[in-house]
């Protein structure tokens, strides 16, 4: 599933030091559960994103383990503290070994 995977992340552009910011992330991915069968009755092999992490300036915000019960196009919403200006790093880990990354800068005053 290396093709067509597109991460999308919503992070405020500015915040005050120590503020809580709400982050929304979505990545396009079919999240094949390994439970479905094709037209010939053969099980379609599992192919999912199995881990998602969000860090800010090298410190972890959230680390999620995903199972096949997570819906197609995995969506997460959570809250982070921003102590200073910097960059969020978002990383998704695919079953097939691919890693998808996205970064967002935030200006803290």
């Amino acid at each position: 599933m290396a093709s067509g995977v597109k991460p999308r992340v919503k992070v405020p552009k500015t915040a005050s030091a120590g503020d809580t910011v709400t982050i929304k992330t979505l990545i396009s991915h079919k999240m094949e559960s390994g439970q479905r069968k094709d037209d010939d009755g053969n099980i379609i092999p599992r192919s999912i994103i199995n881990r998602f992490t969000a860090d800010f300036n090298g410190q972890n915000v959230i680390d999620v383990t995903l199972e096949p019960a997570i819906s197609t196009n995995p969506y997460f919403q959570f809250e982070a503290i921003v102590p200073e200006s910097g960059e969020f790093q978002f990383t998704w880990y695919d079953d097939d070994g691919d890693v998808y990354e996205e970064t967002k800068k935030i200006e803290v005053s």
Binding site: T20, Q59, N60, D63, E79, I81
Partner: peptide
């Protein structure tokens, strides 16, 4: 279904 682990910068 999923496990959420919270790091030092998790606000909630």
């Amino acid at each position: 279904v999923a496990t959420f682990k919270f790091g030092p910068l998790a606000a909630s």
